[in-house]
Structures are given as C-alpha cells and as structure tokens.
Amino acid sequence: MGDLMTTFFSGQVPVEAYLGVSLIMFFAGVYGFLTRRNMLMILISIELMLNAADINFTAFNRYLFPAQLEGFYFALFTIAIAACETAVAIAIIINIYRNLTSVEVGNLDQMKE
C-alpha cells in the first residue's frame, strides 16, 4: 500500500487507481440495479456500470497501448449509445408513468400471462 501511495503522490497516477475507481463505480451500479425499485434509479445504476466500463477502456488504452486510440473511440461510442439508450428508456418510463402513475418495477405485472 505504501508503494502505491508513493507513486500516487509522486505525480504519476498508476493504472490500479483508475481500475479501483471503475470497480467501485461498477459494483455500486450492480448494487443499485439489484436493490432499487424505482425505474429511474435503475436507469442511473445502469449508467454507472456503463461509465465504469468506459473508464476501464480509456485506462487500459492509455497504459497498455499508448500509440493507439481504439479504446478512446470505443469509450466515445459507448457514451453516444448510452445517451440513446437513456433517451429510449426515459420515453418508456414516461409512458409507463402516464398509464400507471407509478414508476415502481414491482407494480409492472400487467403484461404477465
């Protein structure tokens, strides 16, 4: 740990730091996805997981293949797609709200059977 701290404060950020952040973000997203009942909160959790993945892409690109840019572009794509997905999801959620006046996933069982 001391080793890590030394490098951290010496001005050069190691890759483990990025991975640590992304790990925390990812599992925060998983936890939120599993436990939240509000659809908006679930959507936010999904965004968290996606962003965690983006951080991984950029970090690995920067540290493992500094001469190439695929990871960055991939991250950009993911951000764009995540934006679209969020737009669609919000539209669905708004429609559900108009029909049921609720955005709780537990109430969404009218389509079953």
């Binding site: 998983v30 996805f33 599993l34 679930i42 996933v105 537990g106 069982d109 389509m111 079953k112």
Partner: peptide, 12 residues
C-alpha cells in the same frame, strides 16, 4: 417471475 432484477441477481 418476469422480475428482471431477480434474474440479474441470479445471474450475478
């Protein structure tokens, strides 16, 4: 059950 969260939990 149709509950995606439950599926995700099992998947995890």
């Amino acid at each position: 059950s149709g509950q995606v969260q439950q599926y995700a939990y099992v998947f995890l």
